[in-house]
Design a protein around this nucleic acid. Structure first.
Length: 819
RNA sequence: GCCGGGGUGAUGAAAUUGGCAAACAUGACGGACUUAAAAUCCGUUGGCCGAACAGGCCUUAAGGGUUCAAAUCCCUUCCCCGGCACCA
């Protein structure tokens, strides 16, 4: 064991206790200071935290402490996203009840957070698996149900034939079950959904107002919602009064339609093939395609397959008769499940048409090179000039797209429409460790909501987690006391819903609960929530870019529409921190590359880990953990400690005027730089490096002249670093003669004039190459500068006899002479 | 394929209204201190030519352009990471 550079162990314990006793992080509802709500994504209690997890909390804590010094009234809460699969899987494997393992993990992680020195208002802790919390998750379900935003329907879900259970999407890896590696198939089951699609347009539009969200997150959400603009066109079936509706974004190609393809799941197929002699063949084709795993079928590289069903439809714009096919490449979930095929201008249709020798008709010509159908090797998908399109010929296709849409609207052959990729949110889980869906099934009354005053529907604790008889159902189905109940309406016998809710429902509203965590009468306090939200800064991993953040936005909008909150978006600003990588991979227990904070805290102290974590690189970027560089952070803390030790006795200004002035300037420049770096984009790495420069400068000054100013420099370094390394900062602050807590002191202000250089060293370039430097006072006029430059020996040597063509002076920056 | 973000020393990285490329740190090397080591303090450290801490040339993925001036702006190409993807 190496010798300690400073007694971090006792210092850290001392100040952690002090903050706790002083209730430093307890939010004061009555304060009249401006509010600041800093939220970190609440953790899933998985066991022990590693240094990768720490980045999130350390960034949040640094910001909270900084804002505190800036004079804000801080709300910095924490809680536990405590329902979920891993706890249940552990229950099956280790026979440990999920409640026990979860609560145990929470206490371990809580201790780790305290050791890290991250400050939270622990009086506001929420735990989503406790009845006093999930009661209100159930309440949210009821509100959505009342509003018609929760509904039950049969849906195709991921089914593992070996485990005989439904899998969540995230449990399906490339089409295989993550546990037993069996191929996952599609199965129709009755499931509960939230109608998020009703909010698609608003969720998309309001992305525009999220100015302080990362571009990539906004792009991902926009992508996911996937709005497209097009036209719906009805094609009538020849010899029948059926109409087949299809959706296209390329109505400019309507004259080039040569066949139509239906998804194998299309509901009208049965009727269309009723009298077909090849009915059996067609049905067996459909069965074959539907048996293929959904995931595999949706991949673009799967060979296109189809079958002609002996029927024709009429293209409404030109009355052309075109054959009707079924194809494996058409999806029932998107659009209408029927596609008008334009092989000349769509790659997929082209591939299909070539394979089955279907007609190809060019309707958009390449303006650079005339397209010849017989010579086509692939579809022409670029823009071009309209051909074979009657009165739209010779128009540019983009222009024609609008004109055709208008014309079809007038003729009532088509209707402009908008489609989204976003699907409704499937919230049912055949799992135990989640909030029970508050629904009862009554033989007489049907689906009945559990009345609000009967909430919570308690999750029974004595259930069986494994065993053959339960396969395919939630373990709750095995608990008779739970399942058998009375109908709230008719009081007759009824059965409870045994599925639980997706844990993303729990986490879609937790940030509201922090304002009134103990309230047993309502989910959240309207007035407090309206005062404190939207969250000023949300911090978390980019892996939640879509699901959690989209669901939270959705639930907030629903609550807004129902009049429970006055804000429409929950998170004003979002920061997504990068991952910590070790040996080229994300830290994880299964990869065995986790770095434990506990041993590092023991060896170097929490402040070292905090400093290193913030110094490692730009916080939004992934970063490789480097044990040697951790030691560098530790060395710096030792250096800071010794500097304060040296200067704490200084009491006289003794230095030479010039170096005093230099150091004073450096102090103010550093305050400016650190403030701007934190306020800007959380550039903690460069903020820290500039304080390191200040400390280096103070060292160089100290040896020559033991002045009060060096003490001032040390003091400044300590206070500027306080948000990053709070324990040592408190200690040094006290040793410098101040009373605790440093976080009650105002953040230092810089003096713009003192920060300014008065003497400039201007680089002189000749023909764009650096040749000399001149020293000149800041206020020098352009004339004065020219004079000084032309008096410089080096400059004269380079110019020689040559003529000066141009003399460029960039004030305060440099000079360039062109000869 | 589409969308988003990137590519700078041995390494993590600085520098973005265009203005000294490589701050700060890690590693390496050297000096002081020490019986010695550790720790500490002080230096050197992009590449090439060169005896030189003379001087010069080159250098921000590659190529071109704009400009007195480009890591930064524009065009072309390549590569890496993330998301979406047979979405009609």
């Amino acid at each position: 064991m190496k010798e300690k550079l400073y007694p971090f162990g006792s210092i850290e314990k001392k100040w952690q206790k002090y903050w706790n006793d002083a209730k430093l992080f307890n939010m004061d509802t009555n304060s009249n200071k401006e509010k600041y709500y800093c939220l970190v994504m609440f953790p899933y209690p998985s066991g022990k935290l590693h240094v990768g997890h720490g980045r999130n909390y350390i960034i949040g804590d640094a910001l909270v402490r900084y804002k505190m010094m800036k004079g804000y009234n801080l709300l910095s809460p924490i809680g536990w996203d405590a329902f979920g699969l891993p706890a249940e899987n552990a229950a099956i494997k280790d026979k440990l009840h999920p409640k026990k393992s979860t609560l145990n993990n929470i206490s371990i992680m809580k201790q780790q957070l305290v050791q890290w020195g991250v400050g939270y208002d622990w009086t506001r802790e929420v735990t989503s698996c406790m009845p006093d919390y999930y009661k209100w998750t159930q309440w949210i379900f009821l509100k959505l149900l009342e509003k018609g935003l929760a509904y039950k329907r049969k849906a195709a879900v991921n089914w593992c034939p070996s485990c005989k259970t439904v899998l969540a999407n995230e449990q399906v890896l490339n089409g295989f079950c993550e546990r037993c590696e069996t191929k996952v198939i599609e199965k129709d089951l009755e499931q509960w959904f939230f109608k998020i699609t009703d909010y698609a347009q608003r969720l998309l539009d309001d992305i525009g107002g999220l100015k302080d969200w990362p571009e990539r997150v906004k792009a991902m959400q926009g992508n996911w919602i996937g709005r497209s603009k097009g036209v719906n066109i009805d094609f009538s079936v020849e010899g029948d009064d059926i109409k087949l509706s299809c959706y296209t974004t390329r109505v400019d190609t309507i004259f080039g339609v040569t066949y139509m393809v239906l998804a194998p799941e299309h509901p009208l197929i049965a009727k269309l093939i009723e009298n077909n002699p090849d009915k059996e063949k067609i049905l067996s084709f459909i069965t074959k395609v539907r048996q293929e795993e959904k995931i595999a079928r949706q991949a673009a590289d799967v060979e296109k397959e189809g079958i002609f069903i002996g029927r024709y439809v009429i293209n409404p714009v030109n009355n052309k008769k075109i054959p009707l096919w079924i194809g494996n490449y058409v999806l029932m979930e998107y659009g209408t499940g029927a596609v008008m095929a334009v092989p000349a201008h769509d790659e997929r249709d082209f591939e299909f048409a070539k394979k089955y020798k279907l007609d190809i008709e060019v309707v958009i010509d390449n303006p650079k090179e005339h397209i010849n159908v017989s010579g086509m090797r692939s579809a022409y998908i670029e823009d071009g000039i309209m051909v074979n399109s009657e009165k739209f010929n010779s128009l540019n296709n983009r222009e024609a797209m609008e004109k055709i849409a208008d014309w079809m609207q007038e003729e009532k052959t088509g209707k402009r429409s908008v489609h989204f990729k976003l699907r409704d949110w499937l919230i049912s889980r055949q799992r135990y460790w989640g909030a029970p869906i508050p629904i009862v099934y009554c033989e007489k009354c049907g689906i009945v909501a559990v009345p609000e005053d009967e909430l919570p529907v308690l999750l029974p604790e004595d259930v069986t987690f494994s065993g053959n008889k339960l396969r395919g159902q939630s373990p709750l189905a095995g608990s008779k006391e739970f399942v058998n109940t009375k109908c709230p309406k008719c009081k007759g016998s009824a059965k409870r819903e045994t599925d639980t809710m997706d844990t993303f429902v729990d986490s879609s509203w937790y940030y509201l609960r922090y304002l009134s965590p103990g309230d047993s009468n309502k989910p959240f306090h309207k007035e407090l929530v309206n005062r404190w939200l939207p969250v000023d800064q949300y911090i978390g991993g980019v892996e939640h870019a879509i699901l959690h953040l989209l669901y939270s936005r959705f639930i907030t909008k629903v609550l807004y529409d129902l009049g429970y909150v006055d804000f429409n978006e929950p998170f004003k600003a979002l920061f997504t921190q990068g991952m910590i990588i070790k040996n080229g991979a994300k830290m994880s227990k299964s990869k065995g590359n986790v770095v434990s904070p506990d041993t590092l805290i023991e060896r170097y102290g929490a402040d070292t880990i905090r400093l290193y974590t913030l110094f490692i690189g730009p916080p939004e970027k992934d970063a490789e953990w480097n044990d040697r560089a951790v030691e560098g952070a530790y060395r710096f803390l030792g250096r800071l400690w010794r500097l304060v030790d040296k200067v704490s006795k200084a009491s006289k200004v003794e230095g030479k005027a010039k170096s005093n002035k230099d150091l004073e300037r450096k102090i103010h420049q550093t305050i400016e730089k650190v403030t701007k770096d934190i306020e800007g984009d959380f550039k903690f790495n460069t903020a820290i490096s500039s304080v390191m420069e200040l400390v280096n400068a103070a060292y160089l000054c100290f040896d020559k002249e033991n002045s009060l100013l060096v003490k001032e420099a040390a003091k400044t370094a300590v206070i500027l670093l306080a948000p990053f390394i709070p324990h040592i900062a408190e200690e040094l602050w006290q040793r410098l003669g101040n009373s605790p807590s440093i976080f009650n002191y105002p953040w230092p202000k810089y003096d713009k004039i003192k920060a300014e250089e008065d003497i400039l060293i201007l680089p002189v370039m000749i023909n764009n190459k650096l040749r000399s430097r001149i020293t000149i006072e800041k206020a020098a006029s352009e004339e004065r500068i020219k004079e000084a430059v032309l008096a410089d020996d080096k400059v004269n040597a380079w110019i020689g006899e040559k003529k000066i063509k141009k003399f460029i002076v960039v004030p305060g920056k440099l000079l360039n002479i062109i000869i």
